[in-house]
Simulated scan of single mutants.
Amino acid sequence: MTVAARIRREPFAYAAYGTCVCTAAYGLMKLAQALGANALADKDPLPPDLRQRLLARDPLFVTAHWIMFAVAVVGVLVALATVRPWGERVPRRILLAVTWTVGGFMVLRAFGPVGYGFVGDTLVLTGLQPPPGGHTELARELARWDLLLWSPFFLVWGLLWTATAWHLTRTGRGRGRRPA
């Protein structure tokens, strides 16, 4: 059966493929940053001292970008394993644990009950949470970027992960998979 036919038969497969697209986009951004491109690094919501190290290409951050790129590659493979026939060889419990955990953390990051996210950004922009001394304008700019770009991206990405997990939970081993 072709991928298009499988998607028509299993509409939640769109979630897995959407997860792949978001994961690949994030991974490619991290690869570009590891190779020296700015690629939105100046919009990363970090405390001022860490932001300076990031923009100065501190070896710790370059290494972190390479690691995040590798994690993104694994993420693409995990998402694909939930809908592709070769994924039947991956233990279902591992797929469920990874998809639910990653989805939950991303949704939590998007809302940001502590730090950045919809809540944290709103607190900074309304003045209810004071930004670090001497960095008020930078904190507000980064909060705006996070509120308009990063938090919605992490929310959509997290919801795609959780929809993928939910579909995998609901279907069991719908393609002939053994129960967990």
Rank of each mutant, 00 (worst) to 15 (best):
T126D: 09
R92H: 13
W86Q: 06
L123K: 12
L125C: 09
V73Q: 03
L96T: 07
L95V: 07
G87A: 01
R89K: 14
P91E: 14
R89E: 12
V119Y: 14
V76L: 05
Q129W: 11
A97H: 01
G104Q: 00
P113S: 11
V78F: 10
G103I: 01
R92I: 04
I94E: 02
R89Y: 09
V78Y: 04
A70Y: 03
D121W: 02
F118T: 10
V90S: 03
A81H: 00
V83K: 04
I94H: 11
T126H: 09
P91G: 11
V102I: 14
P91I: 09
L125F: 04
G133H: 10
E88L: 15
V124L: 15
L125I: 08
P130W: 00
V73T: 06
P85N: 05
V83F: 04
R89G: 13
G115N: 11
G112E: 12
L95D: 06
M106F: 09
V78L: 11
G134D: 05
G104C: 02
R84S: 08
R89W: 09
R84T: 11
G120W: 10
L80H: 01
L77N: 06
G134F: 07
T99G: 05
T101K: 00
V114M: 06
V78W: 08
V74K: 00
M106K: 05
Y116R: 13
V78T: 12
V83R: 11
F118N: 04
R92K: 12
L77T: 03
L108N: 06
G117M: 12
V90C: 06
V76G: 13
L108G: 09
W100D: 00
I94Y: 14
V74L: 14
L80A: 15
L123V: 04
G127S: 10
V102F: 02
G75R: 07
D121Y: 04
A72D: 02
P131D: 08
T126Y: 07
T122C: 02
A97L: 14
M106C: 09
W86T: 08
V114F: 11
I94D: 03
R84P: 01
Y116M: 13
V98H: 02
R93G: 15
V71L: 15
G133E: 15
A97T: 13
V83C: 05
G127I: 10
T99L: 06
